[in-house]
Write a protein that binds this DNA or RNA. Structure first.
Lengths: 131, 131
DNA sequence: TATAACTCCTGTAGTTACTACAGGAGCAAG
DNA sequence: CTTGCTCCTGTAGTAACTACAGGAGTTATA
């Protein structure tokens, strides 16, 4: 059984984040030791580490909570996992598409910019009346 | 001079968003008509529309505020505009790189998933102790 | 043994960029 | 005279933390 500091070091999360996860129900409340300190088992630390990895992959906390629950279920439903993961892949791809559009527009807008003229062609173009 | 509803329709922002921009100092407070209603000039509506377009390009509100101020300055400093825009392009590109990493990892993790096995290879891999 | 340094506790407020009310008021049409 | 439209202020909620304040217990050193 480890203190929250050790759990933080071993999971890669901060102490504050672990307390926040507990407060918002992402992980179950751990036991408390005699002096009211939180006490984590290796399984619980593993769960925290899994959640950190899922977050590192861009999953939302809700997904991370569901997936980490599925991970400890004895007969984890792989199809449910796959569904969440594929939906997340779709989200990631549509965000990438959005960013690509941003980039193209920005590169075009700034193409004529900064050549020493007084008024800015980028803002001039964006100030136009047509949508 | 237009009401906030008209300003919203003409700028593409919602009424609530315009009030929020005013509250947080992104745009200056407009005049009020006799019955305490906000009253917008065409210049102010243009500024709101510019801010919406900058937001649509992914600029943060702080950048949008600075850029929309530069837009109405008589001798707008094009280099300042260019600096903000290029910094934003960098941000967009690094976010894209991050998403590409997410996508690659997710595709790999889910490659062996969902073939009817009982335990999930994706979660099994993420539960590992290394890293 | 005293004290300094460290970790832990609870609770609250701040971040970004809004969105969604609650509760009220002025104004026009039926 | 009531219904409906727009407007007003103010507050609270969203995602996922982060950063304290203020206090208490624990450990290391002088």
């Amino acid at each position: 059984m480890a203190t929250i500091g050790k759990a933080a070091r071993q999971s890669g999360l901060s102490i504050e984040t672990i307390r926040f996860y507990e407060r918002s129900g992402v992980v179950p409340k751990p036991d408390r030791s005699a002096n009211n300190r939180r006490s984590y088992s290796t399984e619980q630390i593993g769960r925290l580490r899994l959640i950190r990895r899922l977050r590192d992959l861009g999953f939302g906390l809700t997904d991370a909570q569901v997936l980490s629950s599925l991970a400890i279920a004895p007969n984890a439903d792989c199809h449910a996992v796959l569904g969440i993961a594929q939906s997340h892949i779709k989200t990631v791809r549509s965000k990438m598409a959005e960013l690509r559009k941003f980039e193209a527009a920005l590169v075009e807008l700034t193409a004529n910019c900064g050549d020493g003229r007084v008024s800015c062609p980028m803002l001039a173009q964006l100030c136009g009346n047509d949508s």
